Computed example of a mutant assay.
Amino acid sequence: MNNNHVFLNSIAEVSDELFLELQQIARFREIEAGTQIVRLGEIPSKMYMLRSGVIRCYLSTESGKEFNKSFYLPISFVASLTALIKGTPSLFVFETITNCKLYEMDYRKFTILCGKNHKLNELYSKALEKVYMKYESRLVELISLNAKDRYLKLIGQIPEINDLIPQFHIASYLGITPVQLSRIRKKLGHN
């Protein structure tokens, strides 16, 4: 069985027939590091399944300051979800940190398929549940953990983070400065 099919089956049951239908509306792409797959203010039409590499999602202020909201590692779904659902401009930028391999899918074609196939609709629902739980967990971390504990939790989730993601992006994600992150790493012996 195809690895992508195995991944989808880990979320909800996807028959061979349904998997073939999904393949027909998906396109495999290789994207270079530093590419914005969703731009600020763009009305997106695509969703992605990341196979390899790292993507970040960030908010950019009028002054140009960036705040990382999330990191995506394989295998995960990537999309400016609110903008897709509402058909409105994205408030976030999605940018590849490393070279990435991903599957791109037209969101409208996907939702049409969902309307025709109960199992695909179940897969979509389960994937949305996972996204919601991830964001809820992130909110709890930001409210209840100090910077050192947020860093340790992040390392627990992504053990190789210091090799994959630049320190200034990690600091932004944690809501601290790179200098503060450097001090935390030094105290923990992570230098």
Rank of each mutant, 00 (worst) to 15 (best):
Q180R: 02
A83V: 08
I11S: 01
F168A: 02
L152D: 00
V93D: 10
H190A: 00
E13T: 14
E30T: 13
G41D: 11
Q180N: 06
C100K: 01
P89D: 10
R27A: 13
N99Q: 11
F28N: 06
S137K: 14
N146I: 03
S137G: 12
A12M: 06
L73V: 15
Y58I: 12
Q180K: 04
G64H: 06
Y58Q: 11
L152T: 03
N146P: 01
N117E: 06
K130H: 09
V54K: 03
T35E: 01
A79G: 11
V179K: 08
Y107P: 00
N68G: 05
S182Q: 02
S70V: 06
M47L: 14
G53R: 05
L20A: 14
L145Q: 03
K69S: 09
A127I: 09
I55M: 14
E136R: 07
K65D: 14
L142D: 09
A33Q: 03
K187V: 00
L20T: 10
P74W: 04
V131K: 09
R27G: 09
G41I: 09
L164C: 04
H169D: 07
S63Q: 13
R29Y: 11
K130Y: 11
S182H: 00
H118M: 02
M105D: 02
L40R: 02
K186D: 03
G189Y: 02
E30K: 14
E32N: 14
K109L: 15
L154S: 00
Q180S: 12
F77H: 08
A26F: 05
P178N: 02
Y48G: 09
K119S: 12
Q24N: 15
E141N: 13
N121D: 03
K86H: 06
H169G: 04
K148P: 00
L181S: 01
L81A: 13
Y48C: 08
Y103Q: 09
L188H: 07
L145N: 02
V93L: 09
R51N: 11
E30L: 10
Y132R: 00
E136F: 09
E141Y: 10
L120T: 06
F168G: 04
S76E: 13
L123Y: 10
V38A: 13
F110G: 10
E32V: 03
N4Q: 07
D16C: 05
I97T: 06
H5G: 02
C57G: 13
N4F: 01
E42L: 08
L113G: 05
K69Y: 07
L59E: 10
S10M: 12
E21L: 15
K46C: 08
V131T: 10
L128N: 13
A83Y: 05
V131D: 06
S90W: 03
V93I: 15
M133T: 09
P159N: 01
N99A: 14
K69Q: 13
N117R: 05
P178T: 08
I165V: 13
L139D: 08
R138F: 13
K187M: 00
C114G: 05
F77S: 05
E13D: 12
P159I: 04
I43W: 00
G34V: 00
